[in-house]
């Protein structure tokens, strides 16, 4: 491995400042991460520890062997661009592009900026799927070159947020304010986790938080699926959501209506 180093900033963001990136998956024909047919680049490493995380193998930074299987691969910017370019004809046809997801893509800011600049130069639509937990300066540098942010909001209550994700939501909500103020295109994504985020109080708090914006952002609800369970078993992680029931359609609709009644545009993803 060349030139990769991690600086662990006190109490805050774990960051890979290298110009190479660690990617744990490249998913072509992605149709749920922004408009059109997309390639989703899953970047490795995340400062959050969401209990329901779908990609437990993506959390730690750096390439690792988990249960005998190598997870993560180092990419140069041009190497990654070449992979992204492979589906250009589909992006052009469908109004799609590339989405950087994770892990937390903002935790590899140098690489992310580098690849997005290259993509923009090549005329490819770029989206970032983020939990929002990063320094404002990073957002500042990205807003001019990113076409769309898929921005996760999980819990408004700061204590609950810390309890279930291991981090405070202070920066997350502030950063959202910052993006909105700068008129960046945003879709707010809200994972509906039974008994944690998918409770009336939290949903109403999120609604109220978003209502204060003059132009309310589009909202995507992401109902919890148990499909990640297998991954936890495969990689030998402890799964804290074992046997959690999935929401039924009526429950999902109920949460959707909370937003609709306040004039939001809400879609349900992954169905």
């Amino acid at each position: 491995m060349t030139g990769t180093h991690y600086c662990n900033e006190p109490n805050l963001f774990l960051i890979n400042m290298s110009s190479t990136g660690i990617i744990f998956n490249i998913q072509r024909f992605s149709v749920n991460d922004g408009p059109g047919i997309r390639t989703t680049v899953f970047m490795k490493g995340c400062p959050l520890g969401c209990r329901w995380c779908h990609n437990p193998e993506s959390r730690s930074f750096g390439i690792e062997k988990i249960s005998g299987q190598a997870v993560g691969k180092e990419y140069l910017i041009d190497e990654l661009l070449e992979e992204i370019e492979k589906d250009r004809i589909f992006y052009d046809e469908s109004g799609g592009g590339v989405t950087f997801s994770g892990g937390e893509p903002l935790s590899q800011p140098e690489f992310l900026k580098g690849i997005i600049k290259k993509c923009k130069n090549a005329g490819i639509h770029c989206a970032i799927d983020t939990a929002g937990y990063a320094k404002k300066e990073i957002f500042k540098e990205l807003i001019g070159i990113t076409d769309l942010f898929l921005y996760d909001i999980k819990l408004i209550d700061p204590v609950q947020h810390l309890k279930y994700t291991d981090v405070s939501n202070h920066e997350i909500l502030e950063n959202l304010d910052y993006l909105v103020k700068n008129k960046v295109k945003i879709i707010v994504r809200l994972p509906l986790i039974p008994e944690i985020t998918a409770i009336d109080k939290n949903i109403e708090q999120i609604r109220d938080f978003l209502k204060k914006y003059k132009k309310t952002p589009e909202i995507n609800l992401l109902p919890y699926h148990r499909i990640a369970e297998n991954k936890y078993i495969k990689y030998g992680f402890k799964y804290m959501m074992i046997n959690k029931k999935e929401l039924d359609n009526a429950e999902i609709k109920h949460f959707q209506e909370i937003f609709i009644n306040s004039g939001f545009n809400v879609n349900i993803e992954g169905n």
Binding site: I89, E93, S94
Partner: peptide, 13 residues
């Protein structure tokens, strides 16, 4: 719509 785009893309090729 997505499947249609797949078709149109394949046919462009």
């Amino acid at each position: 719509e997505n499947v249609m785009h797949l078709i149109r893309s394949y046919f462009k090729l």
